[in-house]
Amino acid sequence: MRYLAPGSLKEALDILRREDDARCIAGGATLVAMMNADLVAVDVLVGLGRIAELSGITETDDEVRIGAMTRHAEIAASPVLTGALGVVRSAAGQIAHPAVRNMGTIGGSICHADPAADFPAALLAADATIEAASAEGTRQIPIGEFFEDYFETALREGEIVTAIRLPRGPAGARGHHVKFSRVDGDYATVSVSAVLVMAGATCSYARIALGSSGPVPIRVTAAEEALVGSPLDQAAIAEAARLLAEAADPVDDVRGTTEYRLMLIPRLLARALNTLKDGETASV
């Protein structure tokens, strides 16, 4: 195996074009663990850590842009991720433990596309766009098209995720991510990401995504419609949860049976919505 550490995106893309079996490594937290477990063998590793242009959070009036190599800890502490984007910030703060949050990156996380990870659902709720570059140029992938299956994304050979672009969301929106895990820092048994706008006591906007509930994060428009126009009372939340659970296809494993996960969906949805309804801003 060879390790290459390009200093620029262009250099990295050239390597990917040149080398047949090259694999990018971001924070390494997952890939090195898989290499240690003898699950993955790599010929050429391309370390992205030296590419300054891939790191950091910047903002414009319309959007916040998170560089793909930005670490979870920085996202969890970002003062820029407010309002609707609190959903991404609160997800980041709940990933694993401090030491892992100092290693893992948002780009690495979404490229691995682990259905039990926290970012996929949070980014779906935040309506993110994934920016990917290749030697041919840059393209924008809507988050709803990015995740394709367990550990599979729309990323093509030779492409690198460069940034996650987050629209500000509607005025007055707030976002929050809740997860249930067996112990602190474990992967989610089920997670719910929610972005809401309340007009007085009535919900005027809702965007909800389920994590750990199928091969890809799940969003159900009808469930959101069941919430909009309601005071987020028990009946509305139960109906939204029913529609979401209907679309869910969770695995049966050591973190919980399929039935157990389905039972978690209404409870976590209620927890997320009540937190947002009560006007608490997303806390980490």
Partner: peptide, 14 residues
């Protein structure tokens, strides 16, 4: 063996 370390849940879906 090594695949046993990997989640059986996803293997079943696969």
């Amino acid at each position: 063996g090594r695949l046993g370390k990997f989640g059986l849940g996803i293997m079943k879906k696969k």
